[in-house]
Design a protein around this nucleic acid. Structure first.
Lengths: 181, 181
DNA sequence: AGCAACTGTCACAGCAACGTGACAGTTGGG
DNA sequence: CCCAACTGTCACGTTGCTGTGACAGTTGCT
């Protein structure tokens, strides 16, 4: 692929992610224009609208997978892995603000990838519980749900927080809450 | 308004809220069919698609307002008001799962109502902080964001939790987190 | 410099949803 | 029971988005 083509492709994917996050029904034409590219160029790369959505999702999944790998969720000590995961996933969530769940409802391979990532986090949270870092009197999956929420809030409702500070905040809140003791 | 008309209107609003939450671009025809009503009937009540979205939002705002009133956020003791708010807002969030923020982006009056509700909660959270129930070393608005997230998760990711139990869980998590101490 | 890759543009057909008009038929409530 | 309110249906024009064909022009790369 030629350099300019790669640049355009990247612009389309990023712009698409941004606009589709704001409005999931954004037209291809709008995305193309905003990306500084003709509508036709998008269609040359992506046969259909679905293909574009899938490509955006897959790109986000690529980044997410890398973060999970580098966090070493199964080997590193729980607090270290947790902190590293959050610090890594927050920029990903900001660069690719789309909800991959809705985006690829009927796209088998991408959905499977998404599921696998989710499972890895579930396993990690179970390990955290087993090793005594989490309360055991809460519903299964609750801590995981809270983690997802905190990451999302830190990423998008507090866009000025740098990833390391955001990670501190998320981990601290997850473990000890926001109440004064 | 005749009784059957009221029933139909209610069905359209509720069905609309449900389908639009799943897919914000659901067509009027789909909503009508699913509500057991002809497409034309919807158009008789709502001049435009926007009007329907606005009506759904306003209905949700009505319920939310009632919950805020009954929680007595400015008078009742903080823990009582907080618990009562969460217990009341969870059924509302389940019955009207739409995101009013996205739904009424350019609808002045509804947006203003939404803002006012949000402010009331902000004020309450500030009181909670002033009275020593919340940590003061966290970014402004963080506890509020966490509260919103927890309510949302309890309402939709744990649909089997009864409102009182959900409220216990949310308040407990908000104040003391999910970590073992 | 020159080839291959890439892009912009005019044009077109198809489709799905929106919103409206008119009218006959049904249903609720006094 | 009967009027008024309400609904379903056939039909229609409009709009905006999707996806494609062909072709001339530009740009990266060797």
């Amino acid at each position: 692929m030629r350099a300019d083509a790669a640049r355009n492709l990247d612009a389309v994917l990023r712009t698409g992610a941004r606009l589709l996050a704001e409005d999931p029904s954004t037209s291809i034409a709008t995305i193309a224009t905003e990306a500084g590219v003709d509508r036709r160029t998008v269609y040359r790369r992506f046969a259909t609208r679905e293909a574009l959505l899938a490509a955006v999702s897959e790109t986000k999944l690529d980044s997410s997978e890398r973060v999970l790998d580098e966090a070493r969720l199964t080997e590193a000590p729980v607090p270290v892995a947790l902190h590293r995961y959050v610090e890594g996933i927050i920029p990903v969530s900001r660069e690719w603000p789309v909800d991959t769940r809705r985006m690829i409802l009927d796209h088998p391979t991408a959905s499977v990838r998404r599921e696998k990532l989710s499972r890895r986090l579930d396993v990690f949270m179970r390990r955290a519980a087993d090793e005594g870092f989490l309360r055991t009197d809460l519903p299964t999956g609750w801590a995981r749900a809270v983690l997802d929420d905190l990451v999302d809030s830190a990423a998008h409702r507090f866009p000025d927080l740098k990833p390391p500070q955001a990670a501190d905040l998320v981990v601290d809140t997850l473990l000890t809450g926001t109440g004064r003791r």
